[in-house]
């Protein structure tokens, strides 16, 4: 009875989440004129012209590789660095631990707009302007506070017996991190991977500043919006193309989150 009661609102929410997907796909197949005249109607004569346009006009094919490089590079670096830092902050005890944690937390709260100019100057000063490495490092720096905080929170929820047992077995701290903590962080790391991939992939502002000659996919999509008009069907087509990798990533990895550590390590 209780289950049935819950199913209705949950299904309604699921429907509202699916609808935009339908809206986007449906309108991506319309011409701009058809969209203006009827936004919600089912497409009458589907055209793939928008996909072709989006792919060629906004040079998405060229930008795709830039986005993949920056996103993959930054995500791997973020997972590695935040797992290390999370281990230090949540498990190890050292002087100034709280202060470091607070500093990281504070850096999470800096509004991005205000750091644009100094950030841009830093990028220029290190010769990172218009390099993919520059973009990877920028993404890493921007999303690192969030990642460290999440890893720290996650590790703080783990039973302390795990590390203590390993310590008694004679493991060094780096060994504990590599053999116990790093693998245990899998559900959080997958979550982080998905979220950071989403942030990096969808970022416009940072990549606009760092990569000016070549661009990333989302900048190409953002540029599809004109000064006055937005050709919504074209934009929809661009977004379908750009969102596919993220949707795929999510669908593949989301199972892992729930099945993560609950089965093996904790009990053992």
């Amino acid at each position: 009875m209780f289950k049935r009661l819950l199913s209705l609102p949950m299904a309604v929410i699921a429907f509202t989440c699916l609808y935009p997907l339908f809206f986007t796909l449906n309108n991506a197949l319309k011409t701009n004129k058809e969209y203006i005249l009827d936004r919600f109607g089912l497409v009458s004569s589907p055209t793939f012209e928008n996909f072709v346009q989006a792919w060629t006009r906004s040079r998405l094919s060229e930008y795709f590789l830039n986005s993949v490089t920056a996103t993959v590079g930054a995500c791997l670096l973020l997972i590695l660095l935040s797992s290390m830092a999370g281990f230090a902050l949540a498990i190890l005890r050292f002087p100034l631990r709280r202060l470091v944690f607070i500093a990281i937390l504070a850096s999470l709260m800096i509004p991005v707009q205000v750091v644009l100019v100094p950030f841009y100057k830093t990028i220029i000063a290190f010769g990172l302007l218009n390099t993919r490495l520059g973009l990877i490092l920028s993404y890493t720096a921007f999303f690192l506070p969030f990642s460290i905080y999440l890893m720290t929170s996650f590790y703080a929820g783990l039973p302390r017996e795990l590390t203590e047992a390993a310590r008694i077995d004679g493991c060094s701290y780096p060994q504990i991190w590599w053999h116990v903590i790093f693998p245990l962080g899998k559900p959080a790391m997958i979550t982080l991977g998905i979220l950071n991939a989403l942030y990096c992939w969808n970022d416009v502002l940072i990549s606009l500043l760092v990569l000016q000659n070549e661009r990333t996919l989302m900048v190409g999509i953002a540029a599809l919006r004109g000064e006055y008009t937005t050709n919504v069907p074209l934009l929809c087509a661009g977004i379908v193309l750009a969102a596919l990798p993220i949707v795929a990533l999510y669908l593949i990895f989301q199972r892992q989150i729930v099945n993560g550590i609950a089965t093996g390590a904790v009990k053992g």
């Binding site: 707009q113 644009l116 841009y120 416009v204 606009l208 000659n213 953002a222 540029a223 919006r225 000064e227």
Partner: peptide, 14 residues
């Protein structure tokens, strides 16, 4: 270099 219209003047100022 085409910049998105909504961020144009922010980027230009930066």
């Amino acid at each position: 270099v085409m910049q998105p219209n909504d961020q144009y003047y922010t980027l230009l100022g930066t």
